[in-house]
Computed example of a mutant assay.
Amino acid sequence: MNITNVLSIAATAMSALLVGCASPATPASASLVIQAQGSFAAGGVVKTTPGSYDNNRPTAAGQSLHGDHLYAFYQIPRHPRPLPIVMLHGAFQSARSWETTSDGREGFQTLFLRRGFPVYLVDQPRRGRAGNSTVATAMEPTPNDQLFFDQFRIGKWPRYFDNVQFDRQPDTLDQFLRSVTPNTGPYDAGVISDAMAALLAKTGPAILFTHSQGGGVGWLAAIKSPNVQAIVAFEPGSGFIFPPGDLPAAMPSAAGTLSPETVSAEDFQKLTRIPIVIYYGDNFPTEPTLERGQDNWRVRLAMARLWVDAVNRHGGDARLVHLPEIGIQGNTHFAMSDLNNVQIAGLVSTFLRQKKLD
Rank of each mutant, 00 (worst) to 15 (best):
T12C: 00
V33Q: 14
D54I: 03
T289R: 08
Q169C: 04
V33K: 13
G90Q: 08
M336Q: 12
I34K: 05
Q75E: 15
V46N: 06
T59E: 08
F117M: 08
T257I: 13
Y53C: 04
N5E: 15
I154M: 14
D171P: 00
G216E: 12
T110L: 08
L113V: 08
F112M: 10
Q63D: 01
L271W: 10
D174Q: 11
D145V: 09
G38Q: 12
H314K: 14
H69V: 00
P118R: 03
R114M: 03
E106A: 09
G346V: 01
F161M: 02
V180M: 13
R319Q: 15
S337Y: 00
Y160D: 02
E291D: 15
P186N: 01
F334L: 12
A302D: 12
G51D: 00
A138F: 04
R153Q: 11
K47M: 03
Q124P: 00
A36H: 13
A136C: 01
Q151M: 12
P186A: 03
G43P: 08
Q35M: 12
T4C: 11
N312G: 07
R159E: 09
E325V: 02
L88A: 08
D317C: 09
Q109K: 14
L88F: 04
N312V: 08
Q124T: 12
I231Y: 08
V86G: 09
R298V: 06
D162H: 13
Q63T: 15
T137C: 04
R168P: 08
V46Q: 11
P24W: 05
T101P: 02
A28K: 03
Y279G: 05
L18A: 06
L271D: 05
F117V: 05
T26P: 01
A10W: 11
A25S: 14
G256K: 10
L65V: 09
Y160M: 04
I3S: 13
L199S: 04
V46K: 11
L88C: 01
A72T: 12
T257C: 11
P252H: 03
N132C: 01
L177E: 11
L199E: 06
E266I: 09
T48S: 14
T48F: 00
S23L: 10
I154F: 14
R126S: 11
V86T: 11
N296G: 06
V311K: 11
E235H: 08
N183E: 07
Q35V: 12
L306Q: 15
Q35S: 13
A345M: 04
Q146R: 15
S193A: 14
I154K: 01
